[in-house]
Amino acid sequence: MMSEWLDVGAVADVPLRGARAVPIAGGEEIAVFRTGAGRVYALVNRCPHKAGPLSQGIVHGDSVACPLHNWVISLASGEALGQDKGCTPTIPVEVRSGRILICRDAALKLAA
């Protein structure tokens, strides 16, 4: 049996208030975020507005400002905040012993 979680790297490899991308071969990218408070989130790396790469935005609190047109997306729910409407899929993510694990199924679905 294959494990349910994929180890994508160490928490320390993602800058505080920053993000790194995890491309899925043949599919979309996942953006792995680390907030100033040290919490780790993963979203599909695509803004609900016009597909901006969210991993390149400014992370503040538990949200990210999209680099293209500054929509603010909740890292927890993937929902656009404020006046804007739209939602980016979230990817289940866990931190164990300093490693970031993302949900295997959710990741592989993006490759389809």
């Binding site: 490899d13 993602v14 991308a21 995890v22 491309p23 899925i24 990218e29 970031i100 490759a111």
Partner: peptide, 12 residues
Amino acid sequence: DYLHRPLAEVRP
């Protein structure tokens, strides 16, 4: 320079 590299790549 890590800014330019992906954290990891998943190859199903």
